[in-house]
Design a binder for these strands. Sequence first.
DNA 1: AGGTACGCCTCTT
DNA 2: GGCGTACCT
Length: 556
Amino acid sequence: MGIPNLLRFLKPFIEPVHIKKYAGKRVGIDAYSWLHKGAYACSMELFTDPRSTAARRYISYFMHHINLLRHYKVVPVVVFDGGSMPCKAATDNERQRRRELSLNMAKEKLEQGNTAAAVDLFRKAVHITPLMAYQLIKILRSENVEFVVAPYEADAQLAYLTTLNADQGGIAAVITEDSDLIAYCCPAIIFKMDRFGNGEEFTMERTLNTEKHALSFRDFDQQLFTGMCVLAGCDFLPSISGIGTKRAYSIISKYKDINSVISNLKLDKRYSVPDDYDVSLWKTLAVFNHARVYDGKSKSLKHLKPLDKQYLTYLDGDLEILGPDLSPSIARGIAEGHLNPITMKAFDQCSRIFSPNGFLDTSAFDIAEQYGSQEISTQKSCITILSSQESKENMIVGEISSDGQKCKKGVLSLGKFLLQKQSPQVESDEVEPKNVPENNPFKKRKLATDKGQEMGPNELVIDLEDEISDLSCPALSQGSNLTSKNMKQLDFGQEDYEEPSLLVNEVPVAICSSLTRYSMPNKTAPKRQKAPKRSMDKTNKKVNNSGGILKFFTRL
DNA sequence: AGGTACGCCTCTT
DNA sequence: GGCGTACCT
């Protein structure tokens, strides 16, 4: 729950900000906050029909915000929560119980035909499961959005990333709704960011160095600041009854030493301080300082900050409360989104088979799933789905050269393939075309060879203006939602922003598109190195020529 | 004045 | 998770 009232208490130090302030910077995102908000848009569907498009609206919500950041040249780094901390088990269980209660009531109401009441209850029952996070991860992966799954608390992971330089994977700020990040002394945090990029900014620097409303943290160091937060009550340790943010502040600024604070609290008859409160407080401070995080460089767990003797003595060798240690391979599997951080099992058995290629992995798996296949295998450059139902033969549905530089008919046939399955009217000879037609949307642009553009090896670029109207792949032309005409024009302050139509409501575009980076209708291929500027093309359409607005789709 | 317990909201148009 | 509010100390 964060620290109660902390945001209100620190309001004087919080200023309005627009995300464009962080243009060119890497910014960390607490995935949970957007996932949770997004899940509200589809809370009922998540229970009643989890595989439906409607149930995936939380992904649209999330990706809208990702695209917004990219539009303002902010590099998003998405951080997911991992395993739960042992010390939070009690509160976790309580929440779980409440949700289950709501869920049962919701189902009841639904059966009674009271949809309105059911929706209300489903909303109370929503929680973000690792599987939901995994669905998003698959999209992020295909859209080349950087992400990491924290071994435990995303907050700690985010705080850790702020201590690194950008070239080491570090971030300049964090977008979250959780005030816990303040307790981690995160240097810059953006709260309440809306869909236009407006939010409220907290900076440690401003807070420590300015006086507002008779509040001053000039004499506070990091330990005292975190101590104040913990004293006011946090997830790991409830506050002493009668102490909130203000009293925590005044008592810390009075004694300026954690141990003095505790001993004086114990002397004060107004408060009942548990005997072991000092130990608990130091242990909690240890978590905020040394929680276990994932280190992308060594690909293993490490501590947020190097272990400090002062805290270690209170921990008494019990490092478990910082999050149990994990072997590097498990930690990496979790961090890279292959293992469920709770169960430690692979999200899908095939993800690792594909990851060496790093290419069609999840999409291929999606297809297999759709076909009810039991197995998928990759052999050299082919992706094969072992079909268990329709035909007993193995079908080669994709073909990629081993260096990932060429994408042949496979991708197209993939699209056709699915299309045929879902739209019987498609001519059968289109199912496995011998050649990729000249005008096919998946034709590969010359990559990398073009004037220093920095394309990922697996990216395809489609020039929409040229090709959208004349697509050989009906799935795509049908998705005329791709034209700028059908894009929603949203007002983002002074600039117009063409929001990609998020979900293609019809069909198989999914598979193709997860590999595809569409460029907007400017003739030149995207340039991604220079600091891009927006420009107007002849048709007076506003376009983004900095790599195109990213399109994404999800499968049905 | 400050803390706490409680109920309501987070999406979308 | 946050927020606002009525009520308690």
